[in-house]
């Protein structure tokens, strides 16, 4: 899932400074699961904003609304009947949802309340960890199911760098060295011979180097 953090409160408060009526828009997908921008977080931010503004004698009217998905044309129209009643939208979706809302309502100011951070997993309740960078060409079959792109700070493809010590990365001693994890997993799988196979330089065009990506399945299109 996509993981994000709510922006610092001060930053959000500054963004909404010129407005008296805002629509605070959450998303029920990934950003709900990572407890950053779901219905509950929308409630908390609305309450904080109302209190901070009331304290300064500048009351603010906030409509709380949470869409099933902000990144999907099937749901984005749900706010159409009332969006014009508000001066701005503060979106608590990931970067994709925020942009999609802005795209659909071109004359409306759409402000971000979330810093989108990574594609990751839930390790335990309240703890999320990065696993994927969406590089467009998966190599997990070669690396024992551990991604060298997302989990190695240097995205190395043929073994660790000199900064790997006692299984940890030199960038942060709490971060596992991805190549230590890869070797350990290959050993467990009885595939350590794969470690000797040279992985050629990666073609980064399917990743961000080829510019923004679009995926089309003609058979599913309705037009």
């Amino acid at each position: 899932m996509i993981v994000g953090n709510r922006k610092p409160f001060e930053e959000i408060l500054e963004m909404v400074k010129p407005f008296k009526k805002i629509l605070l828009l959450g998303c029920r997908e990934c950003i709900t699961v990572c407890a950053a921008g779901g219905e509950r977080e929308v409630g908390v931010l609305a309450s904080e904003l109302k209190m901070a503004r009331a304290k300064d004698g500048q009351e603010i009217e906030i409509k709380e609304f949470t869409l099933e998905r902000q990144c999907d044309y099937e749901f984005i129209d749900q706010i159409k009947p009332f969006i014009d009643d508000y001066e701005a939208v503060v979106s608590m979706a990931c970067g994709a949802g925020i942009q999609y809302t802005a795209e659909h309502y071109p004359s409306k100011i759409v402000l971000p309340a979330i810093n989108t951070t990574f594609l990751g997993v839930t390790l335990e309740q309240g703890v999320w960890s990065e696993r994927c960078q969406g590089c467009g060409e998966c190599v997990l079959h070669l690396t024992g199911g551990v991604c060298p792109v997302a989990r190695c700070a240097k995205s190395l493809f043929n073994g660790p760098c000199g900064g790997s010590a006692s299984g940890k990365c030199e960038v942060n001693k709490d971060t596992d060295c991805a190549w230590q994890l890869i070797v350990d997993r290959l050993k467990t799988l009885g595939q350590l011979d794969r470690y000797e196979d040279f992985i050629p330089a990666k073609d980064w065009k399917p990743s961000r180097d080829g510019g923004p990506r679009t995926r089309v399945r003609e058979d599913l299109r309705l037009c």
Binding site: F9, M51, A52
Partner: peptide
């Protein structure tokens, strides 16, 4: 911590 952010 949230109250502190708000100024309470």
């Amino acid at each position: 911590t949230l109250l502190a952010e708000v100024g309470i």
